[in-house]
Amino acid sequence: MSHYDFSAQRLFVESALAPGADVLPPAEALNYLLNVLRLREGDPIVLFNGRDGEFRAELREVTRRSARLAVGAQLRPQTPRADLDYCFAPLKQARLDYMAQKATEMGAGRLLPVVTRRTQVRRVNTSRLRANAVEAAEQCGVLAVPEVGEAADLPEFLAGFPAGRLLVFCDEDAPIANPVAALAGREGEGISLLVGPEGGFDDVERESIARLPNVVRLSLGPRVLRADTAAVAALAVVQATIGDWR
């Protein structure tokens, strides 16, 4: 990744990608290419779709209302999504946008809204979550755009949680204050990171979470963090200790 050209303009598309293919950008993408980026005939663009890898392309047959993208050589093969779920109590929209973008940048493979007793926002716009994840992937060279799951109540989430999977539960009352020490040697069959709402989990929820067979209670330090800040802090600790930063 150190040789990656971060100045390249990248565009996520739904179309299949392969050398020689043509992609017809939808209206929103076309407006972005022609009126925001101000690309013209023959200008390069980098395309990815989360399935086929990343490809060089050129803008062809440009008119005021249409254009096509001629796909050239593959630049990078597709990488798999990390088996790292970011599970979060929904937030108000602007902070939820930020959280989705940062979780994508930090390497989450899935974004899963979990509604708790103290969750203030009960309805989640999953299309907007997906759009924010795509935007972050475009800007940061990410190939594997996270999946976005439908919102589930905490009891439903816990009832369906796989037995062999590691649940990292952000808890200000964790018995081990050092988060790195708490995670040491705790790799599992995939990782789910759970961050609660403003005000945290109540006592009944804490007890329910603690009953799962493979749980780590994770402290995020002596300061109280907002939920969107906790997302970045917790993902950084997990990735550095048992994730793909090692």
Results as ranks from 00 to 15, higher is better:
Pro44Ser: 02
Pro44Asn: 02
Pro44Gly: 01
Ile45Trp: 01
Ile45Phe: 02
Ile45Asn: 00
Ile45Asp: 00
Ile45Thr: 03
Val46Asp: 00
Val46Ile: 10
Val46Glu: 08
Leu47Thr: 05
Leu47Gln: 10
Leu47Ser: 07
Phe48His: 09
Phe48Cys: 13
Gly50Thr: 12
Gly50Cys: 10
Arg51Ser: 12
Arg51Pro: 11
Arg51Gln: 15
Arg51Asn: 14
Asp52His: 11
Asp52Ile: 06
Gly53Glu: 10
Gly53Met: 14
Gly53Cys: 07
Glu54Lys: 09
Glu54Asn: 10
Glu54Trp: 12
Glu54Asp: 09
Phe55Ile: 08
Phe55Glu: 12
Arg56Gly: 14
Arg56Glu: 14
Arg56Tyr: 05
Arg56Gln: 14
Arg56Phe: 01
Arg56Asp: 12
Ala57Asn: 05
Glu58Ala: 08
Glu58Met: 00
Leu59Glu: 00
Leu59Thr: 01
Leu59Trp: 02
Arg60Cys: 05
Arg60His: 13
Arg60Tyr: 06
Arg60Ile: 07
Glu61Ala: 15
Glu61Leu: 06
Glu61Pro: 06
Glu61Ser: 12
Glu61Val: 00
Val62Arg: 15
Val62Asp: 08
Val62Trp: 02
Val62Tyr: 05
Thr63Met: 07
Thr63Tyr: 00
Arg64Ser: 14
Arg64His: 11
Arg65Gly: 10
Arg65Lys: 15
Arg65Thr: 15
Arg65Met: 06
Arg65Phe: 03
Ala67Pro: 08
Leu69Thr: 11
Leu69Val: 04
Ala70Met: 15
Gly72Val: 02
Gly72Leu: 04
Gly72Ile: 01
Gly72Phe: 03
Gln74Ala: 14
Gln74Pro: 06
